[in-house]
Amino acid sequence: MSEYTANVKLNTTKKGLIVRLIKDGTVIDHIPPGKGIKIAELLNLFNQDSVVIIGQNLESTKYGKKDIIKVENRFLKSEEYNKISLIAPYATINIIKNYEIVEKKKVVIPDVLEDVALCNNANCISNKEPVPSKLYVISKEPLIVMCHYCGYEFSGENIRLKT
């Protein structure tokens, strides 16, 4: 029995009370502290009817502190995994069905970011005309990307995601 299932009735973790559990939906775990809201905005979670729960600065055995997002009746598309990976490279995505974790995935930074993030060169054609952005990931740690069109190379810290 998973930790998640074990806590369904008690609605607690080993560390104590947590916010309510969801029946069906997605839990995005291991988000760097302070980035939860950004990811929720990016996934457009605030503009829907489903329950969205964001936990900030929760204790994490692995990373010290973390944010967590729970969203009911919402499952992520592959391009959304890519977006999350750029902000939270160690995030885990848990798919919940009937209070059970039925699937657990780690996000992976893809080799190519197609129409996910913007080139940081303001004069790039992809920022001037309706052109799908395309960035090659030339290093994952630290994250460094290069624009397919203008060749501009920049750090992932400065990456701006398409909304």
Binding site: I125, Y149, Y152
Partner: peptide, 10 residues
């Protein structure tokens, strides 16, 4: 020849 960077690749 174009004023925007990356125009030729596009």
């Amino acid at each position: 020849r174009h004023p925007y960077d990356g125009a030729a690749r596009w």
